[in-house]
Amino acid sequence: MKPVFLCGWVVLIVFLFANSYPSVQAGFKPDQVKAAYIYNLPNFVSWPDFQETAGEDIFIIKVLGNRSIARYLEVLTQGEKIKGLPISIVYIDSIYQARNCKILFVDNSYEDAVTDGQLADLANNGILTVGESLDFLKKGGIVGLVPVDKRIVVVVNLSMAQRARISFSSKLMKVAKVFQHEQGEE
């Protein structure tokens, strides 16, 4: 039995060392920064139908397909309010669960599966769609959190925002880039 024990402990030790991930953080994780952006967005966005639907008592942010971002958002929004409303973060994994929210984040792994028609439909319902690429904006998404040289840049699709009757504050527009349709070609 002894050699077996020895082998076992060698395996154990190997696994322990194999498991040493680099613990030095060179910067923030993209998902953390994206969550912070999403958390900040409502301060710079106005939804015209907010008055009409005064009956709403909760500000819902849905996250399609990215549990990390959903969790970061939960931490960021804990005990906070947006436009005077308590916040609910809902993780979903199908575009068909995307209705009934103010902001929808679409993970890039789902961008292919989401159609132009669905994005237009969401815009018609006043939902601010947030994605991670220019392709997403090309399809009809409203805001892109796009990685450019190690940074995450906000890109806005103004025509789709108009369709959703969403307007952005000048403060956001100073930082954001405006999506031009030619940009969609990668």
């Binding site: 923030f28 993209p30 920064v33 912070a36 952006y37 710079f44 995450i152 840049v153």
Partner: peptide, 16 residues
């Protein structure tokens, strides 16, 4: 991150 302004967020470096 929560306390950063949106312009500060835009200038932040991220890991890949």
């Amino acid at each position: 991150l929560k306390n950063l302004s949106i312009s500060e967020l835009a200038s932040l470096e991220v890991t890949s």
